[in-house]
Simulated assay, not measured.
Amino acid sequence: MRFWSGLSLVVLIFLGSISCQDDQEIKRQRYITEGILIYKNTCANCHQNKGQGLASLYPPIAGADYLTNKSDVICLIRYGHQGALVVNGKTYNRPMPAQPQLSDLEVAELTTYLYNEWGGETKVTDVKTVTPILQKCKHRE
């Protein structure tokens, strides 16, 4: 009888650890799904559906060296950008409009999508991470 109770405990612990991973994966998929919708509605017109950018006008997101600084990307999403921006060694000089209508959660969802799709990540950029970054860059404006 002790064998089964010990085995049952091991099975419960194992199932509990899978459940936690599944919860994280469910959250990641939810963020990505919402991020895709936000991207299609606010970003794809310039950066295109596959993130390749548009000729010399708008920089690519896919394969962009600019993705190395996530805080800058998060600030760029909310507050936009004026002036020259160098991406992959090429200078782009079209303004990127601010997206003040996006909530902190929506910025987190969009960021999660961008980095999972084109930045080599497989994790969530949680709203708890995004909010303090947005507060910091707000004071730089």
Rank of each mutant, 00 (worst) to 15 (best):
R2I: 14
R2A: 13
R2F: 11
F3P: 01
W4N: 09
S5L: 14
L7Q: 07
L7K: 07
L7Y: 04
L9Y: 08
V10N: 02
V10R: 07
V10W: 11
V10P: 04
V11Y: 05
V11R: 03
L12F: 14
L12M: 14
I13M: 11
I13T: 14
L15V: 15
L15R: 05
G16C: 06
G16R: 05
S17V: 09
I18C: 13
S19E: 09
C20D: 09
Q21A: 11
Q24L: 08
E25W: 10
I26E: 15
I26G: 01
R30W: 14
I32L: 09
E34D: 13
E34G: 09
E34L: 12
I36P: 03
I36K: 15
I36M: 10
L37V: 02
L37G: 13
I38K: 07
I38Y: 06
I38N: 04
I38L: 11
Y39T: 09
Y39D: 02
Y39P: 04
N41F: 04
N41T: 12
N41E: 15
T42Q: 08
T42D: 11
C43M: 05
C43G: 03
A44P: 01
N45H: 10
C46E: 03
Q48W: 03
N49T: 09
N49L: 11
Q52I: 11
L54E: 05
L57W: 07
L57S: 14
Y58N: 13
P60V: 07
P60L: 06
I61N: 04
A62C: 00
G63N: 08
D65M: 06
T68A: 13
T68K: 15
N69W: 01
K70Y: 03
K70P: 02
K70L: 05
D72G: 04
D72P: 00
V73Y: 12
V73P: 01
I74A: 09
I77G: 02
Y79R: 01
G80C: 07
H81D: 08
H81K: 07
V86S: 07
K90T: 13
T91E: 15
Y92D: 00
Y92H: 08
N93L: 04
N93I: 06
N93T: 08
N93Q: 12
R94M: 15
R94L: 08
R94P: 00
P95A: 14
P95T: 13
M96G: 05
M96T: 14
P97K: 11
A98M: 08
Q99N: 03
Q99E: 01
P100Q: 00
Q101T: 02
Q101R: 00
S103H: 10
S103F: 05
L105G: 08
E106C: 01
V107D: 11
E109G: 00
E109K: 08
L110V: 06
L110S: 02
L110F: 08
T111F: 06
T112F: 02
Y113R: 05
L114K: 02
L114D: 06
E117A: 00
G120Q: 10
E121R: 12
E121D: 15
E121V: 10
E121T: 15
T122M: 13
K123N: 14
V124T: 06
V124D: 06
D126E: 13
V127Y: 03
T129E: 15
T129L: 10
T131L: 10
T131H: 04
T131Y: 08
P132M: 06
P132I: 12
I133L: 12
L134G: 07
K136F: 12
K136H: 06
K136E: 12
K138Y: 09
H139T: 09
H139C: 02
H139D: 10
R140H: 13
E141L: 15
